[in-house]
């Protein structure tokens, strides 16, 4: 069993601080006559966050599916951890996906498996000894505060708990890149804060790079403007200071293209009518 943490020193060095982990270069995709993405280019730096905003159907979730190789672009290049995922076969993509964790809308938990089996699914699939799997599952469920729910079925969980289990499943194998697809949509503000905090903790304490797709502005700004810090045994979520505040960038998609790219301060200061109307 190989966790994403146990990869070659050469690759680790190549993917050191400041290196790009996801690169989109002039990516376009259309379904029949419906153009979903048009000439999209952006770069995600290791340990940073990109937050995709946009109206429903603007192509935000499609970006995540392209990164995972679940969809192939019609034109352009998609690099993930130095691999061109746009031309890899399904079999070759499995290796790239070992370093990617995805939290789907509504969680997409396997409804015939318990919470623990969902969280440990990939580890079991990869042949890790069961003892180590359940120990890791306990650790991860403890991290997201759902240890006592291990034997429950997904149908017995609330919406917020399902999203948190989905995060636990995505982080169980220690991927370096986490993708969140509308992880807080439909949740009440308190539960959404809990999910946001998990995203912040994973980014700042586990050093994962993250791409967050949402149309919940409140959550987007919380993730962009807060950081997790260790205070003894406590983990506190505080307002991001200095360069940390610059590490999360927003990308606003409109009509298949990038309408805005910049940090939270630049987004707030923008006088663009579309952005103003979106933010209001």
């Amino acid at each position: 069993m190989t966790l994403a943490t146990e990869r070659s020193p050469e690759l680790d060095e190549a993917l050191g601080p400041g290196s790009p982990v996801v690169v989109f270069d002039r990516v376009s995709l259309a379904f029949d006559e419906n153009v979903v993405l048009r000439d999209i280019s952006f770069t995600l730096i290791k340990g940073h966050s990109k937050i995709f905003l946009g109206a429903s159907g603007s192509g935000k979730s499609t970006v995540l599916k392209l990164i995972l190789g679940l969809l192939k672009p019609d034109a352009g290049v998609v690099w993930v951890n130095g691999e061109r995922v746009d031309r890899l076969s399904e079999w070759e993509l499995m290796k790239v996906r070992a370093d990617l964790g995805m939290v789907f809308q509504e969680g997409a938990l396997f409804d015939s498996l318990t919470v623990a089996e969902n969280v440990g699914f990939k580890l079991l699939e990869e042949g890790m000894p069961e003892e180590r799997v359940w120990s890791r599952v306990d650790e991860v469920l403890g991290f997201i505060g759902l240890a006592e729910f291990a034997d429950r079925m997904p149908s017995e969980l609330s919406g917020g708990q399902r999203r948190r289990v989905a995060i636990a499943r995505a982080m169980s194998y220690k991927p370096r890149i986490l993708l969140y697809d509308e992880a807080t949509t439909g949740l009440d503000p308190i539960t959404a804060d809990t999910v946001d905090n998990e995203i912040i903790k994973l980014r700042d304490l586990e050093e994962t790079s993250s791409i967050v797709v949402t149309h919940q502005l409140r959550d987007a700004f919380r993730i962009a403007t807060h950081e997790a810090v260790r205070d003894g045994n406590e983990i506190r979520i505080v307002t991001a200071q200095g360069s940390k505040a610059e590490e999360a960038e927003f990308i606003m998609l409109k009509d298949g293209g990038i309408h805005f790219e910049g940090n939270a301060a630049a987004l707030r200061a923008s006088r663009d009518p579309y952005l103003r109307s979106f933010l209001s």
């Binding site: 995972l68 996906r97 070992a98 964790g101 509504e106 997409a108 409804d111 699914f121 990939k122 699939e125």
Partner: peptide, 18 residues
């Protein structure tokens, strides 16, 4: 079909399972 519409099939693929 239920698995497909609830993204469980995509989740399987994302977790590296064919």
């Amino acid at each position: 079909g239920s698995m497909a519409v609830t993204d469980q099939i995509n989740a399987l693929r994302a977790l590296g399972t064919d």
